[in-house]
Amino acid sequence: MPATDLDRPRWPDGKRSCFALAFDLDGPTGDAMLDGSIWNNPAYFTLGSYGPWRALGRLLGMLAERNVPATFFVPAWVLENWPTQCAAILEGGHEIGYHGYKHEAFWTLDRDAQRAVMERSAQVFDKYLGMRPVGFRTPSGDWGPDTIGVLMEAGVRYSSSMRGDDRPYFLPAQRGGTPLVEIPGRWEMDDYASLAYHRNPNFPASLDRIASYDTTLDNWRREFDGSHRDGLCLTTLFHPKVSGKPGRIALLESLLDHMHAKGDVWFSTCRDVAQWWHDEYAPMNPKEA
């Protein structure tokens, strides 16, 4: 079967492939914060707060050195508590997107509860940064039947939440509105899968708890190489508190250097990918092509 225009999409300036580096700056938000148990667990709180407090600055410095833009999906609670650090994201020319208020699982919330999270988040971004994001990544990796409508009501123009392709695609619009662009991620490009350490169970005999750094880097390179070969769009689900540590940031440096050496890659924020996809392909829905 001959390749179609959407099998090998067009990218700006004739670039062969697209790479949208993205981080979830979760901090200590999540289930333990939502149920209150984190306040009895200082070790877990500091593990999360390491992301915005310490790792974020290191990552921003590395990105500046390599002239690579990135998107940071930030729970609004993190912005409230580390406003200066989060402001540095925008000052560095990067993008900030929505990621819940305290990393809520949207699939467990009804329409009104999801609206409340988005409204509160928008107020926080407006108060501390004077802006409202246009992108969203769902916390906890899933959403409910009302989520797309809630996002559109909130002024969101794209999502990077689902897994339905290795190119952007369109999510259905309501009442003939402008469809959302989805920039799908992949678990293979989630640093939690290889590098996060969980003490449950605690130190099992003869079993490594963290993947080899060489293996992890090799996996990420291979994923990029395949995407680049086929002219696709690759994004990441990285977390500053996981991969922004001194030894691990070298993995990101090596990955970006590998991409630069390949050449012909469009390094972009998710926002710019979504805008490009909308401008180029909005008349045609890739899911129906």
Rank of each mutant, 00 (worst) to 15 (best):
M1I: 12
D5C: 02
R8Q: 05
P9F: 02
G14C: 12
F19I: 09
F23K: 01
D24E: 11
D26I: 01
G30S: 07
G30N: 07
M33A: 09
D35N: 15
S37H: 08
S37D: 08
W39T: 14
Y44V: 03
F45P: 00
G48L: 07
Y50M: 03
R54W: 09
R54H: 13
G57D: 14
R58Q: 11
L60D: 01
R66P: 01
P69N: 07
A70C: 09
F73Y: 13
V74L: 11
P75N: 05
W77I: 07
L79I: 13
N81D: 00
N81V: 03
W82G: 00
T84A: 14
Q85A: 15
G93S: 07
G97H: 06
Y98A: 05
K102H: 06
H103V: 10
W107F: 11
W107D: 14
T108D: 15
D110M: 03
R111Q: 12
D112L: 04
R115P: 02
A116C: 09
A116K: 13
E119C: 04
S121R: 12
Q123P: 00
K127R: 15
Y128I: 02
L129M: 14
M131Q: 10
M131P: 05
G135Y: 04
T138P: 00
P139C: 04
D142S: 13
W143H: 09
P145F: 10
G149Q: 01
G149V: 02
G149E: 05
V150W: 00
M152L: 08
M152F: 00
G155P: 06
G155T: 08
V156P: 01
S159T: 15
S159M: 11
S160R: 00
S160G: 05
D165L: 07
D166I: 10
D166Y: 08
P168Y: 04
Y169E: 07
F170A: 09
R175H: 13
G176I: 06
P179Q: 07
P179D: 06
V181L: 08
E182V: 13
I183M: 11
G185I: 15
W187M: 10
M189N: 11
D191T: 15
Y192I: 11
A196I: 04
H198E: 14
N202V: 15
P204I: 05
A205G: 01
L207A: 13
L207G: 00
R209V: 07
T215A: 14
L217M: 11
D218G: 06
N219S: 11
D225R: 09
G226M: 15
H228D: 09
R229N: 06
D230C: 06
L234T: 05
T235R: 06
T235N: 12
F238E: 03
K241E: 13
G244R: 02
K245M: 06
G247A: 04
I249E: 10
A250N: 03
L251E: 05
D257W: 03
H258T: 09
M259Q: 07
G263R: 10
D264G: 04
D264S: 08
V265D: 09
V265Y: 11
W266C: 14
W266A: 14
F267A: 05
S268L: 01
S268I: 00
C270D: 12
A274Y: 02
Q275H: 04
H278E: 11
E280I: 01
P283R: 10
